[in-house]
Structure formats: structure tokens, C-alpha cells
Design a protein around this nucleic acid. Structure first.
Length: 490
RNA sequence: GGCCCUAUCGUCUAGUCAGGCCUAGGACACCAGGUUUUCAUCCUGGCGACGGGGGUUCGAAUCCCCCUAGGGUCACCA
């Protein structure tokens, strides 16, 4: 019953940019929240820059984010094909129609002449634009030269007047046609340009809403004019504020990672990435920062989108990542972290499966200490090292050496552990409480035992509960490490 | 430079469309305390903004104008 049809139209010319991800998310949420259709169309009209790898990466990236589409490459749909390069017959037909109706004209100017024109205009500090020298050419001459095979492009004949772009984010934006160039619809190669095909395809696919980055706003009057020339109603537009780098310019590699893949590789949870992207230009209620995708879909409206550009804040992103990890069920966390543990060479996925409980304990101890999945391997490294030569970090060793009676305390403590084990009290809770009591009974300060012990077991200055470390290692390995520490620390 | 867009704490933003409920709310960051065997988490508190100037109005962050600043765009790229 609804005619709501929304699309994302990425050009497969590089990595999966976060800006694309956010645009896709907003479009998708708009469609999903209103029972509309969501279409994926690959904008590969630039044949020299488009690649199959990039297209595959985009599809994979969007799926990874949890975005699905009703029509698109691979799955098809009622308006196939969904790859622009495969739609050229239609484009040619429409181009001929626009030429026929007089809304377009052939331009025989050579690229060289255009370059010179632009150069001289720039030299005079004028706005570079086409001087319309072919615009008034007679139909006979135009046909004759075209028939003779003279190379030419097709330009849109922009009429006098003004165009008002109705924008759901910005309101009405007026453009005087004196500022709109007679833009090229079809190149001399016969291939249509973006501004032309985007309109043709959106018409064919019955797209009702076009939400895209603000950089497209100035193109919009050209497109609206073409809709008019074709006798079609333009869709509703919504130009999203740009995502900015810390330099306040369009997010680019200069100021940080821009590719979705970079963040996946660093171990940002999917939910955190989606959540963060949603926060760039949109807010749920001004209070709630953390929400899931379903909530976003339910509440998202294009008219609530912020107009000003959003500076990307890596710190907040990192916080959101850590917060997401902390709220994750342990079983899920272990799954997320497994590839990173494997990549570090500590274990295989099969080994993790074989000792599931142990790994859950291992990971749980770091859950509130990591902000990225990739931080885990380094933090659990000691548990994969040989007992005789655990890496002692400088700060840990320094802390341990502050205590003169360290060897004596460690030795006694080792004996106590053996007693606990024999008594069947070898569990984290009992051990943690027991070791505190152990220190108090001897009228010591906590660091007197805990600093040397921490160094012995992990070689790190800080970290998880020591009782946890002990149960993770087991009695034998704990004692071996204590023994080694007594030797190494003296 | 022309055109277009934008303008609330350092950053993301709520509030702006329907002017009073705003001595402007939340979050991140930062600072200070507290909890804790350490680290981290967690808790409490603090710091901190309506770019400037004119109007309109009893009253303006909210409406109007100007200025300033930032951004986008000016391809046979998308």
C-alpha cells in the first residue's frame, strides 16, 4: 500500500567510507521504520575507477552493519538491473528523448577548448562555466556534424528562472538558473554522467525519497530540472550534514581512519559502530546516547536530522565501544574476541571451544578493561606464557621489589595455597577473600603480598583480581610462577 | 572568488518549526573526590555554550536583518 521507496547508491570506487555507512543507515532506517522498500543500486558509471572488489566490499560492509535490501545486485527485483553500468540502453533512450524534446543540445566543443575557457575564466577570477557556444547551433548543423561522426557531448539546456529544491532537512533552497551550468548529460564516449543516470534510475525504480550527503545539494537543481524536462515529479530530498574530521573538513584519511574495515579490524563492536553513526547528526531524545538498531529504526525521522556538520569524535566512539563490550554477554564476547586471539597466535578457535569455561573466565576478567576487541590479546598474554619466564613489565617489577620480605611472603603464600587446595577452597571467591585475610593476619599492608604476587603471576602492574589469576592458572602453574619470581626477584 | 549550506559547552547533541516551563538539559572528554589488593569498572561533584551587532516583543537560544566565522561546491568524478 505504500509507495515509499528509498535507496542507497554507492559508487564502488574505494573503501567502505563511514559516510556511506551512515547515509545507508539513515535511508535504510527510514524505509524499515515505515514499511517502505530499501533498494541498493551500484553507481558504477565511472568505468575507470569502479572495481568489482570495491562493490563486493560495500555489499559485505553494509550486510555486516545489519543493513539488508529488498532489491539490488545479486538478489534482483522488479527494476533490474541494479548496477548502473548495465542500464545504459535505458539511459541512451532517455538521452535521445531529452535531445528530441529540445531540453538538451549537442556540444561539439573539444576538451581542449573547454580547458582553455576554464583557464581564462579562472585567470579573470570568474566562475568557471560553459559559455554555451553550441547552445544556439541550428538543428540542421547539429544533425549534420553528428551524422558525420564528429565527437560531441550532450548538454542540458538550462532555462531561465530558478529552481526551488524542497529539502526535508534544510527546507526550501533556491537556485537561480544563472548559476546552473549547461551540464553534460552524456560524454563524448556515449556514457552518461552521474547527474543524468541518477535521475533516470530513480525514476525507473520509483524512488520516492533521496537522502544523501550535503555535498550533493548543489547538484540537485540540475536533477530537478531534468525531472521536469521528463515530465516527472522529483522525489523528496534530504541532504544530510557532512561528517567532519577534527580539522572540520569533510572526513578524510588525513585526520583518521574513514573506512569501516579499519574499525572492524580494530575490534569495534558492530552495535557500537551503528550506534555511533546514528549519533552523527541525529539524537534519540537528547538524553539517551546508547540504543540499539531497532530503537533507531523505530524513532528515526529525516526531519529530526541536524543541519550542521558533525565533527567525528574518536574518544566518544572509543567510549561507546567499551560500553558496548561491557554490556555484552560473556559467551558473545568470547566469540568476538576469538579471531583476535587466534591472530595473536595464542590459541585456535578449536582450543577455545575445548576449554570454553576457562576462556569465558579469562575473557570475563578483562571485559571491563578493554574498549576494543583487539586490546584483549595483549592483556591476557601472561596466561599463554611459560611459567618460568613470564614477561615482567618494568612498573610491575619495580612495585614488587619495593617489598624487602617479598621472597619470604611469596613462599609462605605458596604454601597457604596448597593448603587451600587440599581443603577444597580453591575457587576465586574463597581465594580472594582468603588472601586478604592472610595479609591481615600477618599485620601486613596489602601491597606487601599483592605487588610481588601480581608481578609473579602476570608481570603486569595492574589488572584483574589476583584470586582470579590463581584459579585461571591452577595450583601447579601458580606455584611454578611464584617459584620463578622468588628466583628472579631475589 | 561566485553560488549554496551552517552557526548552543572543546566534541556529539536536547531545546529553535508552534517566543515565556532555559538562572540552557544529557553524553564524551577533562578536573576533583569516593569504592577497590592494583588496573579498570562503578558512584558523586566540578568545569564548561546560545559567534557579534541591530531590531520585533511585556518577554528571544528560539522570529527578522546585517556582520563574522566555518563548511560544501564550482570535472566529459560520484
Amino acid at each position: 500500500m505504500t509507495d515509499l521507496r528509498v535507496r542507497i547508491a554507492p559508487s564502488p570506487t574505494g573503501t567502505v567510507h563511514l559516510g556511506l555507512c551512515r547515509t545507508a543507515l539513515f535511508n535504510w532506517a527510514y524505509a524499515r521504520g515505515r514499511g517502505g522498500a530499501f533498494i541498493l543500486r551500484v553507481e558504477d558509471t565511472d568505468r575507470t575507477r569502479s572495481t568489482a572488489e570495491s562493490e563486493a566490499a560495500i555489499l559485505e560492509g553494509l550486510r555486516w552493519l545489519g543493513i539488508d535490501w529488498d532489491e539490488g545486485p545479486g538478489i534482483g527485483g522488479p527494476h533490474e538491473p541494479y548496477r548502473q553500468s548495465e542500464r545504459s540502453e535505458g539511459h541512451e533512450r532517455v538521452a535521445a528523448q531529452v535531445l528530441e524534446s529540445g531540453h538538451a543540445y549537442r556540444c561539439f566543443c573539444t576538451p581542449e577548448r573547454l580547458d582553455e575557457l576554464r583557464a581564462s575564466q579562472e585567470a579573470r577570477k570568474e566562475t568557471p562555466r560553459y559559455d554555451q557556444s553550441c547552445r544556439s547551433m541550428s538543428g540542421e548543423e547539429s544533425d549534420r556534424r553528428a551524422a558525420a561522426g564528429e565527437p560531441h557531448v550532450l548538454r542540458f539546456r538550462v532555462p531561465e528562472g530558478e529552481t526551488v529544491v524542497r529539502d526535508l532537512v534544510r527546507g526550501d533552497v533556491r537556485f537561480d538558473h544563472g548559476e546552473v551550468d549547461d551540464w553534460i548529460m552524456v560524454r563524448r564516449t556515449g556514457a552518461a554522467t552521474y547527474n543524468f543516470v541518477v535521475v533516470c534510475d530513480d525514476i525507473d525504480m520509483r524512488v520516492s525519497h533521496v537522502f544523501r550527503g550535503e555535498e550533493h545539494l548543489v547538484n540537485t537543481p540540475k536533477q530537478v530540472l531534468l525531472y521536469g524536462a521528463l515530465g516527472e515529479e522529483p522525489p523528496a530530498f534530504g541532504h544530510l550534514p557532512l561528517m567532519l574530521g577534527t580539522d572540520r573538513k569533510k572526513l578524510s584519511k588525513r585526520t583518521g581512519d574513514t573506512a569501516l574495515g579499519d574499525y572492524i579490524a580494530k575490534g569495534y563492536p558492530r552495535e557500537a559502530i551503528v550506534n555511533f553513526l546514528c549519533l552523527q547528526g541525529w539524537a534519540l531524545d537528547g538524553e539517551t546516547e546508547v540504543f540499539d538498531t531497532a530503537t533507531f529504526v523505530k524513532h528515526f525521522d529525516i526531519t529530526d536530522v541536524q543541519k550542521a556538520g558533525a565533527v567525528f569524535d574518536p574518544k566518544k566512539f572509543l567510549w561507546l565501544s567499551g560500553d558496548t563490550i561491557r554490556r555484552m554477554p560473556i559467551g558473545e564476547l568470547v566469540g568476538e574476541v576469538t579471531p583476535f586471539l587466534e591472530a595473536a597466535g595464542y590459541v585456535t578457535a578449536a582450543e577455545i571451544e575445548g576449554r570454553r569455561e576457562w576462556f569465558e573466565q579469562l575473557v570475563a576478567g578483562e571485559q571491563e578493561r578493554i574498549e576494543l576487541f583487539s586490546e584483549l590479546p595483549d592483556r591476557v598474554r601472561p596466561f599463554f606464557e611459560a611459567d618460568a619466564d613470564v614477561t615482567y613489565e618494568e612498573a610491575a617489577e619495580k612495585n614488587a621489589r619495593k617489598h624487602e620480605a617479598r621472597a619470604e611472603h611469596l613462599a609462605q603464600f605458596s604454601g597457604w595455597l596448597e593448603e587451600q587446595s587440599a581443603a577444597g577452597e580453591f575457587n576465586t571467591e574463597a581465594l580472594s577473600a582468603g588472601m586478604k585475610a592472610w595479609v591481615k593476619e600477618r599485620e601486613l599492608k596489602f601491597p606487601a603480598l599483592f605487588q610481588p604476587l601480581r608481578c609473579a603471576l602476570t608481570g603486569m602492574p595492574g589488572g584483574r583480581d589476583l584470586g582470579d589469576c590463581v584459579t585461571l592458572l591452577g595450583l601447579e602453574r601458580t606455584q611454578a610462577r611464584i617459584e620463578a619470581a622468588i628466583q628472579r626477584l631475589g
